[in-house]
Structure formats: structure tokens, C-alpha cells
């Protein structure tokens, strides 16, 4: 080991970082080299001096000022503003999706085919009204139209269709709340299809 190698080794030795394999060679050189022995003492002084100067108390107010400045600039950062803006957009999108889902659910809620009459299953019919109707029509269209009309009845109904003959027959027994509007529609049907109706027997009672 020459003096140059030894001086690098001395520096590492002061830090306890000299590999074990090099210690013996270094000690052997230093033992026989007065210049390197003196160098080791001086370098130790330099190291001690350096390691004694960074023990400083920074004013607490300085750290606070730095922190305040950093946080203020982070808040001003366009990227952070964009992040905040995107959060608002995200909330808006989620809210819009929720409203759309709710709207779809409302649109496809369980109900009768017609918008005008609520589903019988959803309403407990009042037993106040009972009706009986027998129709004999000249054509199937008239019979089917009456059958379709009975879908609007809000109570329970029992429909029957006698065997087809020269006339098209239809009979219905229906119970439920007293519904003047439905009865008016029946009367309108009778008027509108008068030419096709061969017979029309209607009776009703209320309790």
C-alpha cells in the first residue's frame, strides 16, 4: 500500500467504513510512515470540526414561513385546481347517473299496460260496484275493442267469450269501485259501435 492508498483508507477508517481486508494493510503502512500517521491525526481533526458545525437550531418561524409558502403555492397550482375541478365534475357525473337510473327505474316501475288506469294489483278494489255485460257483435273487431276497454277497469273482472257463431259474443262480470268515468266510456262504446252491435245487455248494482 502506498501513501495515496493509505490516505484514502484513513478517511474510510475514521468513518468505520474500511473493509476488514484492508485494515491490516493500512495499519502496517501507517506504522512505518510518519507522514501518514500525522495525516491521520489531522484528518481526524478536520472530520471532528466538520461534524461539530451542523448542530444548529433553525428558527422555528423560518420552517413555519417555508411551510406557509409551500402550501400557498400548492393551493395555487393549476394541477391542484384541476384536481378539485375534476372532483366537482366527478360528483356531478355521479349525481347525473343516479338521476338517470332513478328515472329509468321510475319509467319501468311495475304497472298496468295503460297509463290511465292503475294496476288492479296495486289497488285494493272497493266491493261497492258490480256489473254484468253481454255483447253480441257483428264483427270480431267490435268484440275485441270492448275486451280492450275492459283492461281499463280498476277492479276485478271475469271475462268470457262464448263459442264463435254468426255473431261475435263477449260477456263480463266485473266488481270494484264505483267508477262513473268507466261507465261513461262503456256508454260511449255502445254509441260509437252501434252499427256493429247486435245486442247489448248491461246490468249493475252498488252496495
Amino acid at each position: 500500500m502506498n501513501c495515496e492508498d493509505a490516505r484514502e483508507g484513513v478517511s474510510a477508517q475514521l468513518d468505520g467504513a474500511l473493509p476488514a481486508g484492508e485494515r491490516e494493510a493500512l495499519e502496517s503502512h501507517v506504522a512505518g510512515c510518519a507522514a501518514c500517521r500525522a495525516f491521520r491525526v489531522e484528518l481526524a481533526d478536520v472530520r471532528t470540526l466538520l461534524r461539530g458545525v451542523d448542530d444548529l437550531d433553525e428558527p422555528v418561524s423560518r420552517a413555519a414561513a417555508v411551510g406557509k409558502g409551500v402550501l400557498a403555492r400548492i393551493e395555487e397550482d393549476p394541477g391542484r385546481k384541476r384536481e378539485k375541478w375534476m372532483v366537482f365534475v366527478g360528483i356531478g357525473v355521479v349525481a347525473a347517473c343516479a338521476m338517470i337510473v332513478a328515472g329509468i327505474a321510475w319509467h319501468y316501475r311495475p304497472r298496468e299496460e295503460s297509463e290511465h288506469g292503475p294496476a288492479p294489483v296495486l289497488r285494493e278494489p272497493s266491493p261497492a260496484f258490480h256489473g254484468h255485460l253481454e255483447l253480441r257483435a257483428a264483427d270480431a273487431a267490435t268484440r275485441d275493442a270492448l275486451r280492450e276497454l275492459f283492461r281499463q277497469w280498476r277492479g276485478t273482472s271475469s271475462l268470457s267469450q262464448p263459442e264463435a257463431g254468426p255473431e261475435f259474443a263477449f260477456a263480463a262480470d266485473f266488481d270494484g269501485p264505483d267508477d262513473p268515468a268507466f261507465l261513461e266510456r262503456l256508454r260511449a262504446f255502445q254509441r260509437d259501435h252501434g252499427l256493429s252491435i247486435r245486442s247489448w245487455k248491461f246490468s249493475s248494482s252498488t252496495r
Binding site: 490516505r7 478517511s11 495525516f39 489531522e42 484528518l43 466538520l50
Partner: peptide, 8 residues
């Protein structure tokens, strides 16, 4: 080591 030597 070189830096310390400069300082010394």
C-alpha cells in the same frame, strides 16, 4: 477522502 484532504 479527497474532499477532506483539500480541507486539511
Amino acid at each position: 477522502a479527497r474532499g477532506r484532504e483539500h480541507l486539511r
